[in-house]
Design a protein around this nucleic acid. Structure first.
Lengths: 142, 142
DNA sequence: AGTTATTTGTCCGTATGTATA
DNA sequence: ATATACATACGGACAAATAAC
C-alpha cells in the first residue's frame, strides 16, 4: 500500500490513500476514522506519520478532529447563498487564530471578506456561496 | 515570554508571539526568521514546538518555508482585480494537494472557484480580489 | 458520582535524508 | 567537501478530553 522507496513521503501517501477511502465511500461523511494508533498498526508506520497525514486532510477541510474523540469525515454543510452587493470587493484568506474563534470556524476553512464603501462583512467559506448581481438589465422591457 | 502553566499550548503561544514580532515590524515582510534550532534555544522549547508554531503560521499563509532554507515572512502579493461575471456563483475552499501544484499555489492559500452556466474558473486567493458587477443600470435611459 | 479505558494533544529525544549555502 | 537548515520518520512519555462502565 505504502511505498517507502517512493520519493513521495509516507504521510502524503497515507493522506492520499485515506482520501481515496473517503471518496469511494469506504469512509462516508459523518463516519469516524480509525484511531491514530489503529492506523499506525494497520499501515505499519509511526503515529507521527498518521498525525501528519491527518493534518493534511484537516488543513484541506476534509476531516474534523476533536481532542479525546476520533477524527470524523466532515459532513457537507448546506451552503447559504449570499447575494453580493454590486461593485463590492471580495478577498479571501485564511483566518488568524483569533478570527477563527470569533466567527466560530473550523480549521481549514478560509475567510471571505466582502467590502463596499459602507461596510465590511466576514463569512466562513464553508457556510456561504457568493452570488454576484445579475447583469445589467436590458431596460426592463419584456 | 512563554508560560508553561497556561492552558494554551506552547506552540500556539509561540506562533502568536512570532506573529506579533511580524506585525510590529521586528520581522518585516521578506525577512528570514531565525532558524528552528535558534528559536528552540532562545525560547527554551523543543524543535517540535518551533515546527508546530511555524506550521500554524504557514497554514495561515503568514510565512513561507523552503527546504534547506530559513522560513521567511511572506511578501504581500500584488492582487489582480478580477471582474466577476454577473449571476455567477463563487465558492471558496482549501485546495487539495494536487490542485495546489496544478495551479502553482503556496501552502495556506485558499482556492476561489467562479462558475457560471458556461464555464468554471479557478483562482488562488492570494493573487486576486473579486470585483462584483456594478449595480443594475436603471434602464439605459437617455 | 467516580473510575477506568480510549483517544487526541503535546512534548521530548534521536536519526537520517535532502536541499541550500 | 563541509556546514547549515529544513523534511521526514521513529520511539517514548505524559496530559487532557471524552466515552464507557
Amino acid at each position: 500500500m505504502l511505498d517507502r522507496r517512493s520519493p513521495v513521503s509516507l504521510y502524503r501517501q497515507l493522506a492520499h490513500h485515506l482520501l481515496d477511502r473517503i471518496r469511494t465511500g469506504d469512509l462516508p461523511p459523518g463516519s469516524d476514522l480509525p484511531s491514530e494508533n489503529t492506523l499506525s498498526s494497520e499501515y505499519g508506520v509511526s503515529r507521527d506519520v498518521v498525525r501528519d497525514a491527518m493534518g493534511v486532510l484537516r488543513t484541506e477541510g476534509i476531516i474534523v478532529t476533536t481532542r479525546g474523540r476520533r477524527s470524523s469525515v466532515r459532513k457537507a454543510i448546506a451552503v447559504e447563498e449570499l447575494q453580493a452587493p454590486p461593485a463590492a470587493r471580495i478577498t479571501v484568506r485564511m483566518p488568524t487564530y483569533d478570527e477563527r474563534h470569533r466567527h466560530d470556524m473550523l480549521e481549514g476553512v478560509p475567510l471571505i471578506v466582502i467590502h463596499t464603501d459602507e461596510f465590511e462583512t466576514y463569512h466562513p467559506a464553508d457556510r456561504v456561496a457568493i452570488i454576484t448581481p445579475p447583469g445589467p438589465v436590458q431596460s426592463a422591457g419584456l
